[in-house]
Write a protein that binds this DNA or RNA. Structure first.
Lengths: 241, 241
DNA sequence: CGTTTAATTGAAAGCAGTCAAACTATGTGG
DNA sequence: CCACATAGTTTGACTGCTTTCAATTAAACG
């Protein structure tokens, strides 16, 4: 299970072994439950094994903005590596399994094996790169492109190897939550998705999303998966992704 | 000069000494010059010593979005720690002095002294935290609050110790660039800034920015400097900021 | 001092938000 | 298995914040 994380950050064999040897506890969260609460502190290093979660902040006016997704293999609370409190909340939107390790153990491990700290930092840098792309998405694209981009990003992140690019993927988000992710209202998300479907760029069955024309959808979105570093990692660190 | 960086990430004495001992080269950039070009690779680890720079991306439609500022003490290209190419460009908007160290030396140093890697990671995490706040700012605040928030953030980052909070600070950005940072057009930035000035929340003399009522401006912005980790760092790592 | 760049202002248009209501899905308990 | 409650989706009409386009003024620069 925790191998997903190891795989996600590309390590040498003995380092992987050291990680697998860590005593970890598993936690489970139902949809709607909070994995991390804003302002709370924690002493655990948490990795999402399966499920789907959103990281969000709330403005003083009560508006919510989702600032990132946590997909299987993602570290849920990287900022805990350095800072004790959370700057945002993380909430499960699907049934989530979370592997947790005491932070002291992680700190000891990374002191002995800086390579692992490197791997963790790589995750942090990818998360930062995704945040930057979100800034571009929300700041400079219209509703149609924003939502198309969101779907393209999720399709790539959920299927990094492009094994099943044309397969539908499950998106456990309400339209309100999609709006909170791309800076739109739920009403406008609804209209925009309808438009994408009408134009043959998107298909939807309940929470299953697919596209009859990914290339066109990417074009509408201005999507280029480079920023996800999915291909780069393998090349740089000599591991198969 | 490089001490600014060391100070910014809070290290022990001998680690600082190791950093200061690094052979570094200084580069200078005039306003408008690129410090980092998108898609280019680099073998140097760069820290901004003085000046002001913007990190930006360009959409397929040719729209520009600034994704972050580089202020004195900031690492210009943290993602280079793990990934060879750039996902955005960095351009000087004021006369910039940049200290550069060969990345191989940094990598060797961080392997010997994981604490330094920790410090670098802290910088990466703060940068990520700022990006998340930008997502909130652009996604869920109106023009007035967005611009107010931008000014509050810069005032805090330029004066982390609150030594001269009521002092004006120099903002070497055009209104077009401010718009590119907060996802608005230059025209609307102009009108909004005028409005803030008219309401006594802001004062402007050329590129010198100040506020007669920072608390009110913060209130309009919904600004809380917690996400900048300016106070946290000192408390956590036992150094004076 | 002329040239270029940036700031400013006005009018009109448009994308997205707001409000409200109806509809659909999902789940629960009797 | 149905009635009901709740949450989410869909649709319409209207409003408004922001953009666009265009022109003018001011500032910066060589």
């Amino acid at each position: 299970m925790l191998e997903k994380f190891a795989l996600n950050t590309a390590l040498a064999e003995d380092d992987c072994a050291a990680i697998v040897a860590l005593p970890l506890s598993l936690h489970f969260y139902n949809p709607g439950k909070h994995i991390i609460k804003n302002d709370a502190t924690s002493t655990e290093f948490q990795v999402l094994v399966s499920g789907f979660a959103i990281a969000y902040k709330v403005t003083g006016d009560g508006f919510r903005q989702i600032v990132g997704f946590r997909l299987p293999g993602d570290i849920i609370n990287i900022q805990h590596m350095q800072f004790p409190y959370n700057d945002c909340s993380v909430q499960a939107t699907a049934y989530c399994m979370v592997a947790a390790v005491d932070e002291t153990l992680i700190r000891n491990l990374t002191c002995k094996r800086p390579i692992i700290l490197n791997a963790i930092m790589a995750s942090a840098l990818i998360e930062a790169s995704i945040s930057r792309e979100w800034i571009v998405n929300i700041g400079r694209r219209n509703a149609r492109a924003r939502i198309a981009h969101l779907f393209c990003e999720l399709a790539s992140r959920l299927d990094p190897c492009r094994l099943a690019e044309d397969q539908p993927f499950r998106l456990p988000l309400t339209q309100q939550q999609i709006g909170d992710a791309v800076g739109l209202t739920a009403v406008h998300v609804n209209r925009t998705i309808k438009g994408l479907i009408k134009d043959g760029l998107l298909e939807q069955d309940r929470h299953l999303i697919s596209s009859p024309a990914w290339d066109q959808l990417k074009s509408v979105a201005g999507f280029n998966r480079r920023y996800l570093q999915l291909d780069q990692k393998a090349a740089t660190l000599g591991h198969s992704q």
